[in-house]
Simulated scan of single mutants.
Amino acid sequence: MSWKSLLAIGISFIVIVSWAAIHGRAALPATDKATEKLVIRQIGHQLLLQAGDSSSRVLPVEERANKEYLIRFAAPFTFLPDTLVATVRRLIAANSLPSSYLVEVIHCAPSAEVIYGFQIHKDKARNVIPCLGRQQEKACYNIRIRFTETKAAGMDPFASGLLAGSLVAILISLLFRALYLRKGRTADKAVNMPALDNSTGITMEITGLQNIQPDLPPSAIKREVPAPSGIAIGNLLFLPESQQLIAGTSIIPLTAKEAKLLHVFANAQQKVIDRDQLLKEVWEDEGVIVGRSLDMFVSKLRKKLQADPSVSILNVHGKGYKLVIGQMTC
């Protein structure tokens, strides 16, 4: 077989690969928007849970032009800006959505007044996050999220990949040609098996490309791990199932009782919780309730929550305790 025939085979290979890639690309479903909608809906779900509402519905997410989405709710709710910001940033980052976006909380029609908003950029120095620490009144709200990140001008990733694949195919064709010509010059030597002739010290030639990419062991295959589902407490993330408190890159372990007690506080942030309610929800299944146990575990929790100075548990005299997040800055 001449080198011209090999080159023709290489070009044919390029054409076939290009056609298959274009055809396969056209057949791919538009998963990006579907993923974005699911993540946006999850944001609404988390906000209702953090407001203590586990039964109201998050209405279907409305997709608008220019990468904009609207979250609507079936019932009024209240929210803390700190929690809203932390929840949105965590879920968007965990699901690899665009890192530049604008979030606005809007009163339901007819006023459609923007009552709170913040903007996140790739460049953190440009982030705009105003008025943290102020609990918003319970009302009918919609949340509008618009992704503002734009792709840099340049070659389309698909075109770049196709070009790279074509170049690889051409290089393979030329390599086959070189090996073929070399084989013609060394026809008297053994081929097709890499081996060493111990009597002459001559290394035999390789005429095929085999085992270029060895199979990887199953342990080397990267698997995606779903982002942990937790509750935002200021700049902390509480994971009830694993009994952990995440503070940046640090993991603070909790005992079973500490996690159970913090779960009650996390579901009623900024609200006074009666001592009897805390004792009932955390210790009722043990049969014997000791009031001092509550004070002791609250003290332990306070120490662990010090990882975020804006988070504290206050003792409300004659009533109970209150989980407070942030200071009133506006």
Results as ranks from 00 to 15, higher is better:
residue 240 P to E: 05
residue 238 F to R: 00
residue 145 I to D: 05
residue 230 G to D: 03
residue 121 H to C: 07
residue 178 A to I: 10
residue 210 Q to C: 09
residue 168 V to T: 06
residue 174 L to N: 03
residue 186 T to G: 07
residue 60 P to T: 12
residue 202 I to W: 07
residue 36 E to Y: 15
residue 270 Q to P: 00
residue 216 L to H: 08
residue 81 P to Y: 04
residue 242 S to D: 11
residue 100 S to R: 15
residue 262 L to W: 00
residue 215 D to T: 14
residue 61 V to E: 12
residue 328 M to N: 13
residue 281 E to L: 11
residue 69 Y to E: 04
residue 186 T to R: 09
residue 328 M to F: 13
residue 303 K to L: 04
residue 314 L to F: 01
residue 63 E to I: 08
residue 294 L to V: 02
residue 310 S to P: 01
residue 264 V to L: 14
residue 56 S to Y: 03
residue 300 K to H: 15
residue 230 G to S: 05
residue 52 G to S: 11
residue 69 Y to W: 14
residue 276 D to I: 08
residue 70 L to S: 11
residue 64 R to H: 07
residue 174 L to T: 10
residue 9 I to C: 02
residue 192 N to S: 10
residue 219 S to D: 11
residue 280 K to C: 08
residue 40 I to K: 01
residue 177 R to N: 05
residue 302 R to L: 01
residue 306 Q to N: 15
residue 139 A to G: 15
residue 108 C to Y: 02
residue 43 I to Q: 04
residue 223 R to P: 04
residue 169 A to F: 02
residue 112 A to Q: 12
residue 13 F to S: 09
residue 197 D to I: 04
residue 251 I to F: 03
residue 24 G to Q: 10
residue 71 I to W: 01
residue 63 E to C: 08
residue 128 V to S: 12
residue 45 H to M: 13
residue 16 I to A: 09
residue 198 N to Q: 09
residue 158 F to D: 11
residue 115 I to V: 13
residue 234 G to R: 02
residue 202 I to P: 01
residue 309 P to L: 00
residue 205 E to P: 12
residue 72 R to Q: 09
residue 53 D to A: 00
residue 296 M to N: 11
residue 71 I to N: 03
residue 188 D to W: 08
residue 127 N to Q: 11
residue 214 P to F: 05
residue 8 A to H: 09
residue 61 V to K: 13
residue 48 L to F: 02
residue 64 R to Y: 06
residue 14 I to C: 02
residue 104 E to S: 14
residue 231 I to V: 12
residue 317 H to V: 12
residue 75 A to F: 09
residue 25 R to I: 04
residue 301 L to E: 01
residue 87 T to E: 12
residue 327 Q to M: 15
residue 226 P to G: 13
residue 329 T to I: 14
residue 102 L to I: 05
residue 179 L to R: 13
residue 211 N to Q: 10
residue 142 N to S: 10
residue 188 D to R: 06
residue 325 I to G: 02
residue 318 G to S: 03
residue 304 K to I: 00
residue 101 Y to S: 04
residue 148 T to V: 06
residue 296 M to H: 14
residue 292 R to I: 08
residue 145 I to W: 06
residue 124 K to A: 06
residue 244 Q to L: 08
residue 96 S to A: 09
residue 229 S to N: 09
residue 297 F to P: 01
residue 284 E to S: 03
residue 169 A to K: 06
residue 182 R to H: 07
residue 224 E to H: 11
residue 179 L to K: 11
residue 206 I to D: 12
residue 59 L to H: 12
residue 247 A to E: 08
residue 3 W to D: 00
residue 90 R to V: 00
residue 152 A to F: 01
residue 122 K to E: 14
residue 58 V to S: 00
residue 5 S to V: 13
residue 20 A to S: 12
residue 40 I to Y: 08
residue 49 L to T: 02
residue 253 P to F: 03
residue 5 S to H: 11
residue 89 R to K: 10
residue 259 A to P: 01
residue 246 I to N: 03
residue 113 E to I: 09
residue 104 E to F: 03
residue 131 C to Y: 13
residue 318 G to E: 10
residue 247 A to Y: 01
residue 258 E to T: 04
residue 104 E to T: 05
residue 42 Q to I: 00
residue 289 I to E: 00
residue 112 A to P: 02
residue 50 Q to P: 06
residue 60 P to W: 11
residue 171 L to V: 14
residue 207 T to E: 04
residue 301 L to I: 02
residue 36 E to D: 09
residue 86 A to I: 02
residue 109 A to M: 05
